[in-house]
Design a protein around this nucleic acid. Structure first.
Lengths: 145, 145
DNA sequence: GGTTCCTACTTCCCGTCGGGAAGTAACCCG
DNA sequence: CGGGTTACTTCCCGACGGGAAGTAGGAACC
C-alpha cells in the first residue's frame, strides 16, 4: 500500500502553510486580516458594538450601525472590507427587502474564531497605550539632544 | 481624604481608551500593529525565526536575517517598520561596530506581550486557510451563475 | 404628481503609501 | 585603489484609501 494517501498529503500540506513564505496563501490571508478596519469590524460584530467589549455577545449589525460604530471609516472602505470578509466566509450578508432596504452582517463561526484572536490585539492596544506613549515621549526627548 | 487618587484617575483614564473612537490614540496604535509586516516581524523575533513557531524562544535577529525570514519585504518597508516599532518601545535596535556594521533587533517585554497576541492571529491564518479557500471557491461558483 | 427622505451603496478625484531598484557610507582586504 | 560587505536611503511610479458627490427604489408628505 502507498504510505501517503491523498488525505495524508493534504493534511501535511495544511500543516505546511507558513505565512513567512511570500507565495503562501496564508500570507495573503494574514495581509487581509491585518487591517485596522477588519479588526474593528470583527470586534464590533463579535462583542455587540462599541462600549461593550466583554460579556455582550456577538450579534448581527446593520450597515449604518457599523458605520456609526467604526468612527471615521469611509463608506467605500466599509463596503469593500465587508465584501472581502463575506467572500472569505468570516461573515454573512443578509438583505431584507424592507421599506428602505436593510442589510445586516453577522459573524460566522469562522469569523467568531478569528474575533477571539483579534479582540486580544485590540485589547492589547488599549491596555498598553500608556506604555507606548511613555516610550515615544522618552525616545523623542533623547532624539532632541 | 479624596476618594480618587491620581493613580486611580490614571487607571480610569487608561480603562477608557477605546479604539472605536477615531481620535483615540489606541486607534492609531491599532492601525500601526494591524500590519502584515509588523505581525511577521513580531512573529520572527518572538519565536526564533521562521519554521520554529512553537518552543523556540525569542531571540535577537540581524537586519539581514529578518530580511531573509520575511520573504518579499522591501528594504524600505523593513527599515521603516522596525524604526516605528522601536519608537513605540516594542523592540530595541542595537548597532555593533564590527567590521561591516551589525545591527540586531530584539523584542522588549512590551513587544513580547504583543507577540503572544499576534502569534495567535498568524496561527489562525495558517490553521483556517483551507476553510477560507473552500468558502471562496463556493462563493465564486455561486456568483458564476 | 412632484418633492423629499431613507438606506446602502458606487463612482470620481486626488493625495499618500508601498514596491523595486539603484545609490550611499563606512570599513577591510588584496 | 577597486571590490566586497552590511544596513540602510533615495527616487520613481503604480496602487490604495479618504472625501464627497451621485445612484436606486420606494414611501410619505404636500
Amino acid at each position: 500500500m502507498a504510505t501517503t494517501t491523498a488525505a495524508q498529503q493534504r493534511a501535511q500540506a495544511k500543516a505546511e502553510y507558513d505565512a513567512f513564505f511570500a507565495a503562501c496563501p496564508s500570507r495573503q490571508l494574514l495581509d487581509r486580516i491585518s487591517d485596522k478596519w477588519v479588526a474593528l469590524i470583527l470586534c464590533a460584530l463579535g462583542s455587540g458594538g462599541p462600549g461593550a467589549d466583554g460579556p455582550a455577545g456577538p450579534r448581527p449589525m446593520r450597515y449604518s450601525e457599523l458605520s456609526r460604530a467604526l468612527a471615521g471609516v469611509s463608506q467605500k472602505m466599509l463596503t469593500q472590507t465587508l465584501r472581502s470578509l463575506e467572500r472569505d466566509g468570516l461573515l454573512t450578508r443578509t438583505v431584507t427587502p424592507t421599506v428602505p432596504v436593510t442589510v445586516t452582517y453577522e459573524l460566522t463561526d469562522l469569523g467568531l474564531s478569528l474575533h477571539r484572536m483579534v479582540r486580544g490585539v485590540k485589547a492589547w492596544a488599549e491596555a498598553h497605550m500608556d506604555d507606548v506613549l511613555a516610550h515615544r515621549a522618552t525616545s523623542e526627548a533623547a532624539g532632541t539632544a
